[in-house]
Design a protein around this nucleic acid. Structure first.
Lengths: 213, 213
DNA sequence: AGCTAACCGGACCCGGCGGTCAACTTATTC
DNA sequence: GAATAAGTTGACCGCCGGGTCCGGTTAGCT
């Protein structure tokens, strides 16, 4: 086991050396960009090259490529959760939910959120990641519940529904990602209209118990 | 170049030998199942094993794994297009569109339709595939137009919108594919409510010119 | 039955991947 | 300015997947 396979959280026993900290930051930035561009299949060699470091250095900071992915995913989850918690205090809960979904799609950009849910077991096994996932689930559930209390969202959808649906707009728009980067906003609009109570028709299938198996 | 790298269409100059035809059918069935289970990354070796044939035989029928994928995609596109053309004569155009989308999601199941759009260049380069794609685009456009004329679908969405959105339900439900295989119906319901005119809010982004770059 | 061309199959090649390691470099400390 | 622990590196390994090939097999015709 490597000495520095921690995952962002918890201050290290001894602080990193200056150059190591720099490299780690560059590595995370490069990994984020490369995963965004090529999905979870981005190669470690490419990430290292983009970061301007050697391949070996990558594995010094993260024992496995999946752990590196886990760090990125964790960052996204925490960012989104914090944003959602801020919005929980907003007066207009429907607007807050829409704002939350917009920001979530924006942060995640083309890095498909779907692997936040169906991520490989190795990533989800990391306690920090699954904890952050639970946190986000809770936040979304609360936002949805408040929006429903105010009549801004139809009563027959659930938190897990919204979690599963929230990555749909950016995914639907992904074929035109390059030529029309803002298209996901349009499809988030369509989705949100589908979540509204006005003109809602009964849904032909019960909601899932949880967004993960 | 292989002698039999055709792609379903056009009767061969000379008919295939009996065993070759059998193997080809088994190969297509196995490839369909394997692609459905593991996405486009399914390995040729696995496909051959499932079909009960040797790996070399796969490449005798299709010069490349991508051509094999192309054949599957082509089949899906043609099936869906035919179904859509049948439904063009239906009286209730809104119901027809919903039925079409339901059938499309059903046929495609977990085999994500997204690579019908963002498919690798090699697959789309095949004239038969791009022709079938154009055909499906036309059918969807016509179904949407008729539904709009009857006031069953909001006026500010377009054919390309629906094409991009039609794979969203099955994709959103995919994390729970195994535990709840019919969940996509629920999300198709949400999407379709979002496409209805009642309660529609203005969309924050213009529609794309075409669903492919 | 016998002939032939089409067909089959799995051993093989090659490139790219994640991951390892021992030699080298450098930040830090006294 | 040593001394040393921490950090870096890129050559290297094993593995896996797509694609090739040739010796053996078999369907179809006469």
């Amino acid at each position: 086991m490597h000495p520095t396979n921690r995952l962002e959280t918890a201050p290290p026993a001894r602080p990193l050396r200056a150059d190591a900290a720099r490299n780690r930051e560059a590595l995370l930035a490069a990994a984020s960009a490369e995963f965004a561009a090529h999905g979870a299949d981005a190669s470690v060699a490419d990430i290292a090259r983009r970061a301007g470091i050697g391949k070996g250095t990558v594995f010094r900071h993260f024992p496995t490529k999946e752990h590196l992915l886990g760090a990125i995913v964790l960052d996204r989850l925490v960012t989104i959760s914090e944003l959602g918690e801020d919005l929980l205090g907003a007066g207009d809960a429907g607007r807050a939910l829409l704002e939350f979904l917009t920001a979530a799609c924006e942060r995640v950009q083309q890095l498909d959120l779907s692997f936040l849910l169906a991520a490989s077991p190795a990533v989800l096994a990391e306690p920090a990641v699954s904890a952050a996932q639970e946190r986000m689930f809770g936040v979304v559930g609360a936002l949805v519940a408040r929006a429903q209390e105010q009549g801004a969202v139809r009563a027959d959808v659930t938190g897990p529904d919204v979690i599963l649906l929230m990555c749909a707009p950016s995914h639907a728009a992904s074929p035109l990602q390059d030529s029309d980067p803002g298209l996901w906003r349009r499809y988030l609009g369509v989705l949100f209209d589908g979540l509204r109570p006005e003109g809602a028709h009964p849904l032909p299938h019960p909601p899932p118990a949880a967004p993960v198996p």
